[in-house]
């Protein structure tokens, strides 16, 4: 290939319902400004969003799925972090 490759950006959109920005896909663009414009054209053709983030794909650091057991196991054993671990007499009512 003689042409230089165009960088890849991950696109995150905040929907109008006030939710957090959510990943929705990626676009290719030369720089951040063009990435934002491309993301608007590709991912918000029907008013899906009120705000867009674009992040260079190469900058994303991801956890390794092969290590997910070591990574997330410690939370599974800590059942005392959940409200249902504690017994409250019924007479006390909702808590």
């Amino acid at each position: 290939m003689t042409e230089k490759t165009t960088p890849l950006w991950e696109v995150f959109i905040r929907s109008r319902t006030g939710m957090a920005h959510r990943h929705c896909g990626s676009v290719h663009a030369g720089d951040a400004e063009m990435a934002l414009q491309a993301a608007r054209d590709v991912y918000t053709r029907r008013g899906e969003g009120l705000s867009i983030w674009v992040v260079p794909s190469a900058e994303i650091i991801a956890s390794d799925p092969a290590q997910k057991d070591e990574m997330f196991e410690p939370t599974a054993s800590k059942i005392y972090r959940h409200p249902t671990f504690y017994e409250i007499p019924e007479e006390v009512g909702n808590m």
Binding site: E3, T5, L8, G25, S26, V27, D41, V42, Y43, R45
Partner: peptide
Amino acid sequence: LAKVQDEGGHGLYLYSAAETLGVSRE
């Protein structure tokens, strides 16, 4: 026009999904 633009958009969503498998757009 809107429909044809959508088809272009659909192509891009799909290329984006394919690229996650380690193949480049080029």
